[in-house]
Write a protein that binds this DNA or RNA. Structure first.
Length: 90
DNA sequence: AATGAGCGT
């Protein structure tokens, strides 16, 4: 189950996400997207959970919750190449 | 190399 987490604190890293989701289930892997130039967080990340039930549970619990002082948004992730409306962003 | 909705080096 791929999970999408956004509005993260810029200080939030993979381990922070990992720890947050591990409270509710078995985390396969957690990754915060980092900017290639600045090396800092882009403000969102992805979490892979092998157990779908735990994944949904984690989403319910962590969505609109607080992480590193920021209210984050947790949803089910979309397939990678399924964002045609994605523009040049700015 | 900043920023604060959005879906990945």
């Amino acid at each position: 189950m791929n999970i999408f987490a956004a509005k993260l604190n810029y200080d939030t890293t993979d381990e922070t996400l990992q720890a947050a989701f591990e409270e509710f289930g078995e985390v396969d892997s957690a990754k915060v997207i980092m900017d290639k130039f600045t090396g800092r967080s882009k403000g969102f990340g992805f979490v892979e959970m092998s157990n779908d039930a735990e994944a949904r549970n984690a989403i319910n619990a962590l969505n609109d919750s607080e992480l590193d002082g920021r209210t984050i948004v947790v949803k089910v992730a979309e397939p990678k190449g399924d964002r045609p409306q994605r523009r040049e962003r700015y």
